[in-house]
């Protein structure tokens, strides 16, 4: 009876992939420690929001999750980041492969100016050395999931840089989705956008989170409440490295936080 149930469950809902676990992650820039033993579980196919005031290490933490942190000269790191149980900092795992599986969308939209919309979407495949069997369908699928297809389907060969800021950001999301990552990291993806574009991006996040694990850094508390199921609150005392004060389901963090500092922050009393 039990075994049959498991089988059926597996058929209906295949083993969730794309779970990220950070274990005691600490970060340094040169001698300065900016992150102190951060442990966090980011569940597969859910949206985890990282909130906290500026300079508390949210972005630094996010960048350790796909090995972008180490690109900054002088940056160092301790601890483990596990993707489906495997350490991404294992010397046998190539950083490029990890970054393909864990995509990233940046604060400032950065479509490649020398490429058309279509080429931008396909750029990830070209850059990571993957073959595209049916590029047209990949372009359509990625743009549709990013909620941009209807707006640009008739001008795929025009410049990516000619789109509006919000469209550019959705193009960057489509570009990341085209390589079919298991996790998508978003570093304040809406902070440079107007409210309407922000709403479109949030819709996009809701749309893609059924297949991709999303970790989003945001300064916007309402946004964290709207898009995320899990939430982690970061804080750094003056001249001290940042750490996680509290993490858990978003509804708990925003309505019944256990730490008074969390309550102060989510109610806008500081930060």
């Amino acid at each position: 009876m039990t075994s049959l149930n498991t089988d059926i469950n597996e058929l209906v809902d295949p083993a969730p992939a794309g779970g990220l676990t950070a274990k005691d992650v600490s970060c340094w820039f040169g001698e300065r420690k900016v992150l102190e033993r951060v442990s966090l579980e980011m569940r597969p196919r859910t949206v985890t929001a990282l909130i906290g005031p500026s300079g508390c290490g949210k972005s630094t933490f996010l960048r350790t999750l796909n090995r972008m942190h180490e690109l900054i000269p002088g940056a160092q790191l301790g601890g483990q980041v596990l993707l489906d149980g495997e350490d991404i900092y294992n010397p046998e795992v190539r950083a490029t492969e990890t970054r393909r599986r864990i995509g990233m969308v940046f604060q400032k939209p950065n479509p490649f100016p020398a490429m058309s919309i279509r080429e931008n979407v396909l750029s990830g495949l070209k850059l990571s050395g993957l073959k595209a069997d049916d590029p047209d369908s990949i372009v359509e699928k990625a743009l549709t999931r990013a909620g941009l297809w209807k707006e640009v389907s008739d001008r795929l060969d025009s410049a990516g840089g000619a789109l509006s800021g919000g469209q550019q950001q959705r193009l960057c999301i489509a570009r990341s989705l085209a390589v079919e990552p298991e996790v998508l990291l978003m570093d304040e993806p809406c902070s440079a956008l107007d409210p309407t574009s922000t709403l479109r991006i949030e819709d996009t996040i809701a749309e893609i989170s059924d297949r991709v694990t999303v970790v989003i850094v945001t300064h916007n508390m309402q946004q964290a409440q709207r898009v995320s199921q899990q939430c982690a609150f970061f804080l750094a005392a003056e001249n001290k490295p940042g750490h996680i004060v509290e993490a858990g389901p978003t509804s708990t963090i925003f309505t019944r936080p256990s730490d008074p500092r969390t309550e102060d922050y989510v109610n806008g009393r500081f930060g």
């Binding site: 940046f106 490649f112 100016p113 750029s123």
Partner: peptide, 21 residues
């Protein structure tokens, strides 16, 4: 620099980033 980061975050090597982006 954002373009280089964008390219590397897609899983590109340094050389591919230079040549393609």
């Amino acid at each position: 620099g954002g373009l280089r980061e964008g390219s590397l975050a897609l899983g590109a090597t340094r050389w591919k980033t230079v040549r393609q982006v």
